[in-house]
Design a protein around this nucleic acid. Structure first.
Lengths: 172, 172
DNA sequence: ACAGCCATGTAACTTGTTACATGATTTT
DNA sequence: AAAATCATGTAACAAGTTACATGGCTGT
């Protein structure tokens, strides 16, 4: 539900038209998550259906401006207030993969762990390189994202190591 | 796409019927991700449509058994082979929330960071408690999941701290 | 008898996503 | 004049999810 609420957040600052929402979202998230324009329009239609935004017809011009409504602001506030994730934690594809490989013996868990570690360490290096090249003054969003990705990747590698230890202990 | 591939993984071990797939998935993932039975049947229909599984009619009985096909095994192998995530990293709702709060000034970022930290630390304590109560011999999947959740939560808290530092430095 | 689990399936729906058609405006 | 970007929208679909209808089988 990130896209919905992201559009609301941008519209909370000031009214905008569809394409502007796309560019604004991408700018604010340092361009890391490209947002298909088509999706902006479908999402806006759904937000309008739910009464969270309204179009402002400017004499039938092609550019349609959208405003957030009171219920829209309430929905946005609720989103900001509610902590992310929790109970049950969202599905973790990597965990599912490993657990099923072990449980069903339909793949070699050790090999999956190794592949994943290689890929994740490579990503980690890229993040480090990007951070070196980033300007802390003007690219704060980008740096915050790199922080997030790096910490996640590090946690993932720790988990892969721990899996190997626990699984090895079992079979060895 | 975790559900699709999970069903394939289970069917790769031996044929099964819909309800059995549900129970098996939940058992193998320590019951943490409840799987609605209805979803198993809709997913099986889609897998059949794509030629990855075939039903085995046992003389018209109610219990329908499903087998994995050659292409099904290939799809499963491809899933196991491909490392998870990467490029671009999947959307991170927490990161989006913080970044948009900062960029659009539609919410107090400091408050969000604090809320989130409180919630995540609470979860962390629960994980620790669960791990104390878990039996390493018989509950390996559960323990691996707790490891994953714990490491993720710790990474999240580190990120929240780092955000506060970087944002504070800017405005202070 | 009846509660609870085993079992199958359909309908309706959500969010996210892409591909396509169409044209205006701006920059080179 | 051509290319790039701005701009709007529709159609179709994927994957996930829930609610509902239906019934058999098992243990108390």
């Amino acid at each position: 539900m990130s896209v919905r609420h992201s559009l609301l957040a941008i519209l909370a600052e000031r009214p905008a038209h569809g394409y502007g929402l796309k560019s604004r979202f991408e700018r604010d998230t340092a361009g890391i998550w490209p947002l298909n324009v088509g999706q902006v329009y479908t999402t806006l239609a759904r937000l309008e259906r739910d009464g969270l935004v309204v179009p402002r017809d400017d004499g039938g011009g092609a550019r349609q401006e959208w405003r957030i409504t009171k219920p829209g602001r309430a929905a946005l506030a609720a989103w900001y207030d509610a902590p992310v994730a929790g109970d049950p934690p969202e599905r973790d594809e990597l965990a599912i993969k490993i657990l099923l490989a072990v449980a069903t013996r339909s793949a070699d868990a050790g090999r999956i762990l190794q592949n994943q570690r290689t890929a994740t360490m490579r990503r980690l290096q890229e993040y480090t390189r990007h951070r070196r090249e980033a300007d802390p003054e003007r690219e704060l969003p980008w740096i915050l994202l790199l922080d997030a990705f790096t910490l996640k990747a590090e946690a993932e590698i720790k988990w892969l190591d721990r899996c190997e230890a626990r699984l090895g202990r079992r079979s060895g």
